[in-house]
Design a protein around this nucleic acid. Structure first.
Length: 298
DNA sequence: CACCATGTTCCTTG
DNA sequence: CCAAGGAACATGGT
């Protein structure tokens, strides 16, 4: 469920369901996902705790709770990794195969399920301090973005995945944002002009904002929504509008016509991650038609 | 069997 | 100390 918009939608969905619920019992089925918190400390801290709030930072979920007999609140940090999911089930329901942590809440139970166990649910909040600005907040300014980019010669696509640069962009929305900004994924980060930096900044915000809006209109019931991890990137939930599956303009569309110019979308590998782009709209020298200056002769 | 997948961290090298 | 590159983590789908 992994990038910022999916986490945001999940947080909005989960927040009212958890508010004021008390943890009656704690079941840890994969100690690994708690790291570096020990199983004992995790269970001891959460048993009897009451949820008071849930928010998001980058791709992380931040659960605020009040431990039993304590006045101050504490924080539980969640991350979905590649395949993680979090949801409530009736207390009597059978556990899914890869349930990593189960929190009994009375008549319901909170499930953290993760097929690959790359995700986290931990009392260690230190990761949050290393995150860059929230892309949808005021703090994500052109100036700070430009400064961060200027220090790197890496291709811009790879830089966008750096969570200390800006928090929450993942592999899918990195391709989407670059397409929207009409920037070549291979462009060295430090070579972007001020204008390009600002275009990219706006593109990131638009792409994430639209994805949140889109995901917010879809019921998060996890029941019928098909394959591919049941993420709202792919496919669509029954009854949801058609634009839902047309949301992604380049990601996963290799060979299909570009929605702008019709030339086939290409894909390549960058730092072992796939990148999708339009070689016509996202030219390294800018998206203009072929002229002498832009053509390399052999 | 081989390869691919929404993510992060650790290790090494320069 | 920092930037960059690559492997590792674990499982399932095609």
């Amino acid at each position: 469920m992994p990038e910022l918009p999916e986490v945001e939608v999940l947080v909005r969905h989960l927040a009212p369901l958890l508010r004021n619920k008390t943890v009656r019992n704690v079941q840890v089925r994969r100690v690994k996902v708690l790291a570096p918190t020990s199983s004992r400390k995790f269970a001891r801290t959460l048993r009897g705790a009451r949820f008071v709030g849930l928010s998001r930072r980058g791709k992380y979920l931040v659960f605020e709770f009040r431990a039993q007999n304590q006045t101050r609140t504490q924080i539980l940090v969640g991350h979905l990794g590649m395949t993680g999911r979090m949801y409530l089930l009736p207390a009597a329901a059978r556990l899914p195969r890869h349930a990593a942590v189960v929190l009994g809440l009375g008549r319901e139970k909170f499930i953290f399920e993760d097929t690959r166990y790359f995700g986290r649910l931990t009392l260690d909040a230190s990761v949050l301090a290393r995150l860059g600005p929230e892309p949808l907040a005021r703090e994500f300014t052109a100036a700070c973005f430009a400064r961060a980019l200027s220090r790197s010669t890496q291709p811009i696509k790879i830089k966008l995945l750096d969570q200390s640069l800006v928090a929450g962009v993942g592999n899918i929305y990195a391709s989407e944002a670059l397409f929207r900004a009409r920037l070549a994924p291979t462009l060295p980060a430090c070579r972007l002009s001020n204008d390009q930096v600002d275009r990219l900044r706006r593109a990131i915000r638009e792409v994430l904002r639209e994805a949140i809006d889109c995901g917010s209109t879809v019921p998060l019931n996890y029941s019928g929504a098909g394959k591919s991890g049941r993420l709202f990137y792919f496919g669509r939930a029954p009854g949801s509008p058609d634009f839902y599956e047309e949301r992604l303009r380049v990601y996963g569309r290799a060979g299909q016509p570009c929605v702008n110019c019709g030339s086939p979308i290409k894909d390549m590998l960058q730092a072992a991650r796939r990148t999708f782009y339009c070689s016509c709209c996202q030219r390294p020298r800018g998206a203009r038609t072929g002229r002498k200056s832009g053509v390399k002769s052999v």
